[in-house]
Every structure is written in C-alpha cells, then in structure tokens.
C-alpha cells in the first residue's frame, strides 16, 4: 500500500498563512525507461492531485479546492508538493491522488483555527 506524509500545523490563528507539504510514495515511471533486459517499462504515473478544505459542520460537502494539480512524467518519483493555505475557519483538509492502473490514495487532516 502506498504511503503519504502530510505536514500541516494542527492549529492556526485566523488569517495566518500556513505551509502545507504533501509527499506520496509512487515511482512515477515515465514510460521512456528500459529495464536491464531492454524492455520498455510501462508508464505508471500519478495524474491528478487535489487538496480541498471542508469547513467544520459541513461534512457532506466536498469542500473548496485549495489547490489541484495535473502531473506529468517530469515530476520526480515520490511526488512532493508544497503550497499554502490561509486559515479562516476550523475544518478538514482532504488530500487525493489519482493515477494510472487505478492508483488512488486519500488522506485527511483536521485543522483547528482560533
């Protein structure tokens, strides 16, 4: 099973700008490399990433996009993304990665804004 590491502060002050880091385990096989036997290694990429913010009390809501990304073969293996969030209200950050061969990984992190 793939693993992911999310770095977000647990608590923040309203209006504060936070840094979010997301690292996920994936080879990002380009489709251009050959094995030692000379066979082309099939392309296996994460294609999409998103981070949504779901306000507390609105659990059935899919939330608002903080950032979304389409990734290609030139993204390094075990993709790392860092971006920001302006803390407004408490809620949950929902991370989602999707890719070839049915790859799908989700993570959730709660954020308390005071």
């Amino acid at each position: 099973m793939a693993r992911a590491l999310i770095t977000v502060p647990r608590t923040a002050k309203r209006g504060e700008i936070l840094e979010i880091r997301a690292l996920v385990q994936h080879p990002m096989e380009t489709g251009y490399r050959r094995s030692s036997e000379g066979d082309l290694l099939p392309r296996d990429l994460i294609r999409r990433f998103s981070c949504r913010f779901v306000e507390s009390g609105k659990t059935d809501d899919t939330g608002v996009i903080v950032i979304a990304a389409t990734l290609h073969a030139a993204i390094a293996a075990n993709p790392y993304l860092s971006f920001n969030l302006r803390a407004a209200t408490s809620g949950t950050l929902a991370f989602n990665w999707e890719g070839d061969n049915g790859f799908s990984h989700r993570e959730q992190v709660a954020l308390i804004v005071t």
Partner: peptide
C-alpha cells in the same frame, strides 16, 4: 519544458483560499 519528450511538467489550479500564490515541487 522545452526538450523532454513531453513538454508539460505540471498544471496547477489555485483558489484564494491558498492565501499565497506559491507552489514547490521536485522535477526531473
């Protein structure tokens, strides 16, 4: 990028929620 077999590296969609217009990643 100019010379990889595929010119696209990544496309990001941002919202005002981000607070800062910044992305960092690692590329080949």
């Amino acid at each position: 990028n100019e010379k990889n077999p595929q010119n696209q590296v990544a496309e990001f969609t941002l919202s005002p929620l981000a607070g800062r217009a910044r992305v960092a990643t690692r590329i080949r």
